[in-house]
Computed example of a mutant assay.
Amino acid sequence: MTSAIHPDGGAGTIATGRFDPTRLKTRQLALIVQLDIHRSVLRAADAAHMTQPGATKLLRELEETMGVPLFERHPRGVEPTWYGEVLIRHARSVLAELRHAYDEVSALKAGLTGQAMIGTEVTAATNLVPQAVALLKKRFPQIRINIEMEFSEVLVQRLQEGKLDMIVARIRNPDDLAELHYAPLAEAQHALFARAGHPLVKRKALSWDELAPQTWILPPKGNVMRNQFTQLFLELQLALPTDVVESSSLPVITSLLQMSDMIAPLAREPVRPYCIAGALEPLPFELDLKLGPAGIVTRRGDRLSPGARAMLQALREAAGFDTQGPDAESD
Results as ranks from 00 to 15, higher is better:
Ser3Phe: 12
Ile5Met: 04
His6Lys: 10
His6Phe: 12
Pro7Gly: 11
Gly9Asn: 08
Gly9Lys: 10
Ala11Asn: 13
Ile14Arg: 15
Thr16Ser: 14
Gly17His: 14
Gly17Ser: 14
Phe19Cys: 13
Pro21Met: 11
Pro21Lys: 15
Thr22Ser: 13
Lys25Pro: 01
Thr26Trp: 12
Gln28Val: 07
Leu31Glu: 08
Leu31Cys: 13
Val33Pro: 04
His38Asp: 14
Leu42Asn: 11
Leu42Met: 14
Ala45Met: 09
Gln52His: 11
Gln52Asp: 10
Thr56Cys: 06
Glu61Ile: 08
Glu63Ile: 07
Glu63Gln: 02
Met66Phe: 06
Arg73His: 10
Pro75Leu: 03
Pro75Ser: 06
Gly84Ser: 04
Glu85Cys: 09
Val86Met: 09
Arg89Gly: 01
His90Ala: 10
His90Gly: 11
Arg92Ser: 05
Val94Asn: 08
Leu95Val: 05
Leu95Arg: 01
Glu97His: 10
His100Tyr: 05
Tyr102Arg: 09
Glu104Met: 06
Glu104Tyr: 01
Val105Asn: 09
Lys109Leu: 09
Lys109Gly: 10
Leu112Asp: 05
Gln115Asn: 10
Met117Thr: 05
Met117Ser: 08
Ile118Asn: 00
Ile118Trp: 00
Glu121Tyr: 15
Glu121Val: 13
Glu121Asn: 15
Thr123Trp: 03
Thr126Lys: 11
Leu128Pro: 01
Pro130Gly: 12
Ala134Gln: 15
Leu135Tyr: 07
Lys137Trp: 04
Lys138Val: 13
Arg139Ala: 15
Ile145Trp: 07
Asn146Gln: 13
Val154Lys: 11
Val154Gln: 07
Val156His: 00
Gln157Ile: 04
Leu164Ile: 12
Asp165Ala: 11
Ala169Leu: 10
Arg172Met: 12
Leu177Asn: 02
Leu180Asn: 00
Tyr182Glu: 01
Pro184Ala: 14
Gly197Tyr: 13
Lys202Asp: 14
Leu206Trp: 10
Ser207Gln: 14
Trp208Asp: 06
Trp208Gln: 09
Glu210Val: 13
Ala212Asn: 01
Thr215Glu: 10
Trp216Ile: 06
Trp216Ala: 00
Val224Pro: 09
Phe229Gln: 03
Gln231Cys: 08
Leu232Thr: 06
Leu236Gln: 08
Leu238Arg: 12
Leu240Val: 02
Leu240Met: 05
Pro241Cys: 13
Pro241Leu: 12
Thr242Tyr: 03
Thr242Cys: 09
Ser249Thr: 03
Val252Tyr: 07
Leu256Asp: 02
Leu256Gly: 02
Asp261Leu: 14
Met262Phe: 04
Leu266Glu: 03
Pro273Arg: 06
Pro273Glu: 07
Cys275Trp: 08
Ala277Lys: 08
Gly278Tyr: 09
Gly278Ser: 13
Gly278Asp: 12
Leu280His: 03
Glu286Met: 07
Leu287Glu: 04
Asp288His: 15
Leu289Gln: 07
Leu289Tyr: 14
Gly292Ala: 05
Ile296His: 04
Thr298Leu: 01
Arg300Leu: 06
Asp302Ile: 02
Arg303Gln: 07
Ser305Cys: 14
Pro306Arg: 08
Pro306Thr: 14
Leu312Asn: 06
Arg316Met: 03
Arg316Pro: 02
Glu317Asn: 08
Glu317Pro: 00
Gln324Gly: 05
Gln324Arg: 09
Ser330Phe: 01
Asp331Ser: 05
